[in-house]
Design a protein around this nucleic acid. Structure first.
Lengths: 207, 207, 207, 207
DNA sequence: TATGAATGAGGTTTCATTCAT
DNA sequence: GATGAATGAAACCTCATTCAT
């Protein structure tokens, strides 16, 4: 399409072997971009090959099927969510959500959809979906909860498990169903308007 | 599935013109079943034709494209959610959720996924998705909220809009991401473990 | 390739539906020609489509796979071998062989090879091979043998089963291994030079 | 299969240059095994490389094409058929057949088929086929015939050339068409039930 | 010399859609 | 109005062969 020239096409490690880690990342980038753009079914090896300036045969040499290429690319796209100890449960949760927000990538909405879609055809992807969509924040949030318990911060009558799921469920819904990009504003509404009244003994809003 | 008639290859109304409303419903049933089963992309006109015992050409005569057939079928599959006045906000919300739960159809998880998937290709489906997944309960819940406001039941510091979204967001996540069927138990956990502590001034749990 | 004109391409029932028996035969003719020409593995649906002036999709509508198309075409290519009663076993056998020879088709050598080749991949073809290559003459020959037995024509110490296989085995070998076309001369050598001394009590050579 | 060595991934001589005769034989063994297993067309260089633990590039360095590799391997797989002088023509022929039977290799049926198949694409293979399938026994048999002539053992009215072809043609047919392994029993039937009555003046059956 | 990697040119099969009856 | 049949345009995957190290 663009026959290169004065830059274009994204730099071009092409001709570099796929074993090269940078080249590999380049391919994964194409894969993730494509997945986000068109979803799992319309994602074609031809398109990947074209954009990555590789031949399909080359791709197939490294990843023996479309499914495996997709899985590999997604597996390497693990977001890192950290949750520092702020001293209060709600404060900790806010940090977890903000950390997740900071790691949010423009392609992530599309990738989530692709994952839901593809997981219907491929069991490996289904596993990935449960892991990835079901718990990215969850894990960090659980650590925060553990700390809260040790501190004796208890919220009686609260279903703690659901309370932890709550922020992610809301974010997910806004993103997937309502086509919104996740925003600091939404995180604040969730933390201040729901989590704080629900869990807080302190958890004041910082900054 | 087909409650048959006077025998033959599975009964049904095939050979009856598509203008006939019952025949129409029959076709939609096939469409919804297929969508739920395989999703939007693997849904093929051939399969519809086969299962509905019609010819593809006939289908195309009534619905000029795959997308339009899908949209038409989904539009006719509107769940009805009612919410009687129980006297308290939480009580009302519980009723709304139970009513939604009662209308839940085994195909609905699949249809939600199909909708997410297809809405990527077709703007009409995208609209449907926002409407359908974004607000089925919402509408009824909003009525309950209005009543609560009139009663002066106020939850200070609560983000009411998010609070209304919350139960559906959780249900959605459990259904779509964790592969669970929605259950009375989950509804109870949401109402008793989250909504009640959040909103309740009373809202006791009925039998 | 040849865009028709003043004849060419073999008549051209193309555009006629594949359900039409004559069109069907036309396709089979292309299939058999191709099989004979290039064998089973190099036989491609593309080539068939091109030569038969049909689209691949059309072919796939009628025959759901390459293997099934091949099997169908071969099944319709049954040679007819008759064996009149000449009064003597050797005379009868000669007739059977001559009848087989008369039905010989220039493509048959290629088809035999294709059958051997394809039968390695497809069990249906393997069955066909055993039937077709193992017994075309055999059946007629057995009838002749039965008559001989009724007449009391007995060849002591002869393995009759092998004796019946003998002419076909020799023809097969000359055809498959030595690239010869089967000929009247070869049949005569077999009958006069082997079968007669082996079986004959009379069996004079006619004409 | 691999009689191993000091451990490792299955032993073998991989990493040893292809110029080494033992390594060469090892590769040919892989080639023959593969040919017998899957035939000529499904025989892939990838598979050879894999099983022989060599790289395709290495193979291509020694044999410039698939066809040449196959030819080379087959050429080295010449069966040895001997035929001692037993004093009678039929006795000699039996020895020839038994010698051939003794040299029969489990892969040989597959190799014959592969040869028939491949000889359609490659003239070199076609030559090989005519030589290999057309005459393995023939040559030894001819020597026996020459001795018989010198002894004055004459079979009048017999087509001697065909008579010599006969046993091999029958064996070939049983092997290729009927999927039988060649057996002592079949050889005996051929010798005792056909050759003896046809040619014999003595030729008694030995132990 | 041996090899890891790349690739052009297919090969089978599928699908939304359109004709002709 | 209903249908059997046809089809162009992909999609996934494979293979003999060639480079570059």
């Amino acid at each position: 399409m663009d026959r290169g020239g004065h830059g274009g096409d994204g730099g071009g490690l092409h001709k570099v072997p796929l074993s090269n880690p940078e080249r590999r990342r380049e391919v994964f980038d194409v894969v993730l971009g494509l997945l986000a753009e068109v979803g799992y079914e319309r994602f074609t090896m031809d398109l990947v090959a074209q954009r990555a300036r590789a031949s399909k045969a080359t791709l197939y040499q490294r990843w023996p099927s479309k499914a495996e290429l997709v899985v590999a690319a997604l597996q390497e796209h693990q977001p890192v969510v950290t949750g520092p100890d702020t001293g209060s449960l709600v404060g900790d949760l806010r940090q977890v959500l903000l950390s997740w927000l900071a790691g949010w990538d423009a392609r992530d909405r599309g990738l989530m959809l692709a994952l839901l879609e593809g997981s219907r055809r491929d069991e490996e992807l289904a596993r990935l979906r449960r892991d990835r969509l079901g718990s990215p924040i969850r894990r960090a949030a659980e650590a925060a909860l553990a700390r809260a318990r040790r501190r004796g911060e208890i919220a009686p009558r609260i279903d703690e498990e659901l309370a932890l799921e709550l922020p992610f469920a809301l974010l997910l819904m806004h993103v997937l169903v309502l086509d919104e990009e996740p925003s600091r504003a939404l995180v604040d509404r969730i933390v201040d308007g729901l989590l704080t009244p629900l869990l807080s003994t302190s958890g004041e809003r910082p900054e």
